[in-house]
């Protein structure tokens, strides 16, 4: 692996780590203006992260989604960038302190896995790699953001119940967090659908079958159902609050299994990342 990639990786992890710590400290003790200024720092970290991805792409000569190292790098990049855009669009800076540590976690995970730039496994040499993977990862990123928003919801609910709101940790209003989760899932769900469909087409090209009920496909289907249920209860049945947010936590667990857990267990093309 190139020297530049290592340096950029460490620098990016450091940037997210510093951001996590300062955002946490500012949330507890800082002023509103300081919090906003710090939160904008996510763009700096995302810029470093972008450089890291490009360096890796150049280094390995293929789209960086071939092994755990690359997928974790790509996934945390999409997560951070999606959050940074949302923060700018909604002018709300309160979720950054949860998202930055997740980016640290994702990149550290990459750091401690096999990171030699292996050639692309023949099975992955397909134009579908460029469609299937980005759609799936962006869906995962939105589900992660919905999970973060749900966590903040429960935290806020707790503070309100024990009469400590507005707490030191100035979290947004309960209904805002609820609405944001809904927005995130509304964006993630169609992307997941596309990822499943492109995955099926790819499967057709490779295995001559759209659907094989392999672990990845099975769990993707479960994931699709969970978020489908969430959207249905909210949009059609008008459910709000606690119950729907519990579904989001459950959805995130299923997402982790689909995204990572299955890969460790299976020996198919998804599993190739880890072998």
């Amino acid at each position: 692996m190139g020297q530049a990639v290592i340096i950029l990786l460490v620098a990016t992890i450091a940037a997210y780590l510093i951001l996590s710590i300062t955002l946490g400290a500012a949330a507890l003790w800082g002023r509103e203006a300081l919090k906003r200024a710090l939160a904008r720092g996510i763009w700096l970290a995302v810029a470093l992260h972008t450089a890291l991805l490009i360096a890796r792409w150049v280094d390995s000569g293929h789209f960086p989604a071939a092994n755990t190292f690359e997928t974790m790098m790509l996934f945390s990049w999409i997560l951070a960038a999606a959050y940074a855009i949302m923060q700018t669009v909604f002018q709300n800076y309160s979720l950054g302190m949860f998202v930055s540590p997740l980016a640290v976690l994702g990149l550290s995970f990459a750091f401690f896995t096999t990171n030699k730039a292996s050639g692309l496994v023949p099975i992955l040499k397909s134009k579908w790699l460029y469609f299937h993977v980005p759609f799936a990862f962006t869906a995962y990123a939105f589900f992660t953001l919905a999970f973060v928003s749900a966590l903040a919801y429960f935290l806020k609910e707790y503070f309100l119940k024990v009469k400590r709101a507005p707490s030191r940790l100035k979290l947004p209003a309960l209904d805002w967090l609820d609405t944001m989760s809904y927005r995130f899932v509304s964006m993630g769900f169609p992307l997941l659908t596309i990822a499943i469909v492109t995955g099926a087409i790819w499967s057709m090209n490779v295995d001559d079958a759209f659907w094989l009920w392999n672990p990845k496909q099975t769990w993707s289907f479960i994931l699709w159902v969970v978020y489908g249920v969430y959207l249905h209860t909210r949009a059609v049945r008008g459910m709000r609050g606690r119950g729907t947010n519990i579904v989001l936590i459950l959805g995130f667990v299923v997402m982790l299994i689909t995204f990572l857990g299955v890969n460790f267990l299976s020996k198919d093309m998804h599993g190739t990342f880890f072998n």
Partner: peptide, 8 residues
């Protein structure tokens, strides 16, 4: 004002 902790 406390209501605004729940409803933005």
């Amino acid at each position: 004002d406390m209501a605004r902790q729940i409803f933005s």
